[in-house]
């Protein structure tokens, strides 16, 4: 006791800070940091193949996967690190898409430039919504997020200024067809890389440590001195940022903003499913999950056609994952100690 009393208050604070940082940091010794960088490098030079042939389809697939990597990594900050499952994140997808799409339609400013602003708008909305909805947890939170999608759908369907249910057509860019996808391709790759990097940094910060503590036991986290409410709302806002940013460019890429592109349940389900399948709460999980889900979707749509089958398959994958691999691929492998080094991004 005496020893403790002799210490100045500052040194206690210092010591605590050092300890927190030690707990938060400590990246895994086995990780292979070169692998994600190598993947990124390959993705950046991939479009050069357009010189020798037409790879638009593969560019579309990679772009699609990258958009989901960005969104799912964002979702993961709230759903994976913090443990609050939201089925309503496509609301931010829509908000980002409509905000950037409307400005693009009226003033011709590219949505790629607008994306960070759209992300910020989504984050502000996320902050406000989180402030309201994060009072409840568990099933109540999930249900309230579903109600949010329903409310947003009716609002956007009836908002004549943004075109109502029919939506709004946006002009396509004037690049030749083999290059026309590239601006969006690079935008989504950049967003995905940024989202993965950010989720790595968040996971190993004091903020991320707090979020992980909340997901383990919120009451204990609160009594350990974490401002759980602020942390949760912060996580909500950050996750909304990435989803909103992806939404912004998605509208211009499809040359259309319409409620039934953004506000269908399949979009938010995909975000959830990608994280569940890959491993929620891990950095590599959303990337792996997005690749698998986009591939699955492509196979189901190509071989079986109907969108009903796609819904059935999505539900089936989700149920099987929940029942047999609740930790997801990365989580299950890591728990068994069999995670390959190249997938260890934590």
């Amino acid at each position: 006791m005496i020893e403790f009393a002799n210490q100045t208050e500052d040194s206690v604070v210092e010591a605590r800070k050092a300890r927190v940082l030690k707990m938060a940091k400590g990246p895994s010794q086995n990780r292979a940091a070169w692998f994600p960088l190598a993947v990124l490098a390959i993705l950046l030079v991939f479009p050069a193949l357009q010189f020798v042939g037409n790879f638009n389809y593969f560019i579309h697939l990679l772009l699609f996967a990258a958009s989901y990597v960005a969104m799912a990594s964002g979702w993961n900050i709230l759903g994976g690190f913090t443990g609050y499952i939201s089925l309503g994140h496509n609301v931010f997808f829509a908000v980002g898409g409509y905000f950037a799409g409307m400005i693009f339609a009226r003033y011709g400013i590219s949505t790629i430039i607008l994306a960070p602003v759209a992300g910020l708008i989504a984050a502000i909305l996320g902050f406000a919504l989180g402030w309201i909805t994060l009072r409840v947890r568990g099933p109540s939170f999930i249900i309230s997020s579903l109600a949010l999608v329903m409310i947003a759908r009716i609002l956007f369907d009836n908002w004549e200024f943004v075109g109502g249910a029919a939506g709004l057509a946006l002009p396509a860019n004037s690049l030749p067809v083999e290059w026309s996808k590239l601006p969006y391709y690079y935008a989504f790759i950049a967003m995905a890389a940024f989202a993965v990097w950010a989720s790595y940094r968040i996971k190993h910060s004091k903020f991320g440590l707090g979020l992980r503590a909340i997901s383990k036991d919120e009451i204990k986290a609160e009594s350990a001195g974490i401002d759980t409410r602020l942390y949760k709302i912060g996580a909500f806002a950050v996750s909304a940022f990435f989803v909103g940013m992806a939404g912004a460019v998605w509208g211009e890429y499809l040359t259309y903003i319409r409620p039934n592109i953004f506000l269908i349940i399949l979009v938010s389900v995909n975000m959830v499913l990608i994280c569940l399948l890959g491993g929620k709460g891990t950095v590599a999980g959303p990337v792996l999950g997005a690749l698998l889900i986009v591939a699955f979707n492509e196979i189901f749509v190509a071989t079986l056609g109907a969108s009903e089958i796609n819904i059935l398959a999505t539900g089936l994958i989700m149920a099987l994952t929940l029942l047999f691999f609740p930790l997801g691929i990365v989580g299950t492998l890591a728990k068994a100690g069999k995670l390959p080094r190249i997938l260890n991004w934590d």
Binding site: G138, A306, E308, I309, G315
Partner: peptide
């Protein structure tokens, strides 16, 4: 459990919707 079952029933709903729809 009850949080897990929300997601489980949600996926059952999708399976049933897809099956009935097709």
């Amino acid at each position: 459990y009850s949080e897990m079952t929300v997601l489980l029933t949600f996926s059952v709903a999708m399976i049933a919707e897809g099956a009935l729809g097709s």
